[in-house]
Design a protein around this nucleic acid. Sequence first.
DNA 1: TTAATATATGAACAATTATTCATATTTTCA
DNA 2: TGAAAATATGAATAATTGTTCATATATTAA
Lengths: 122, 122
Amino acid sequence: MNNCSYIKNKTCAHHDHEKVLPAQDIALDTLFELSEFFKFFGDTTRIRIIHLMLSGEISVNDIAEKLNLEQSVVSHQLRILRTANLVKPRREGRKMFYSLDDEHIGLIFNTGLTHILHKKGK
Amino acid sequence: MNNCSYIKNKTCAHHDHEKVLPAQDIALDTLFELSEFFKFFGDTTRIRIIHLMLSGEISVNDIAEKLNLEQSVVSHQLRILRTANLVKPRREGRKMFYSLDDEHIGLIFNTGLTHILHKKGK
DNA sequence: TTAATATATGAACAATTATTCATATTTTCA
DNA sequence: TGAAAATATGAATAATTGTTCATATATTAA
């Protein structure tokens, strides 16, 4: 991947890196929302929950058991993740199953993982 | 993109979603480091700095001016980003230029941006 | 060496956030 | 309807983190 791919709707001037591309114009409040969005990945409990969901949907109690966490801790964090559109709920009887909202969540998880493993290997 | 792409080194059983893939086995401390890594994206000031760097390297003072921030705020945040391997420094005389560490940083930024813009559009 | 410029750092304070504990809802089944 | 099971929520506490202000370090040029 080349350095130009960060910026959408712009073409790289044939790798002429003397010319610097202007940053995509992004509204201040969009950048704020973006940082808020990333905050949700920035907690061990939530990352572990997201990690579990890479395998598919899972119930609240199953998360609590697998991660050895209090049910209320899981529930609180799930509400945060749900409100932030990182996960989506599905009711089945008295159980609630949660799964990742869409493919971006797993992609971000894995890109971050790739980065830190790459850095570790140095 | 299909649901299987989250998980590396696993092949999707021809979209047979009755069978659920096991999550990639990731050490607890790696998941912790991953959440720590994402924390650095979870702050408006840092996201704005990263956004500027999508266009290329930039000096500390230029960041402070463009973002209308105190120099010490920028310097503190740059230290955090540098320690976390999100940005790398280059000295030129008495100026310090910072740029994104590698392509993962921009990729994560843009994947997150795509996600929230997609959600906004609903 | 001294002054000026650019950047970095330490400590204190303010603000945010995760966890805990108790309790409230919601759904199912007898 | 009442009890049990699964999940959600509110309030308090503890811990983390960003900003501020003052000052320190590093580099250049006179």
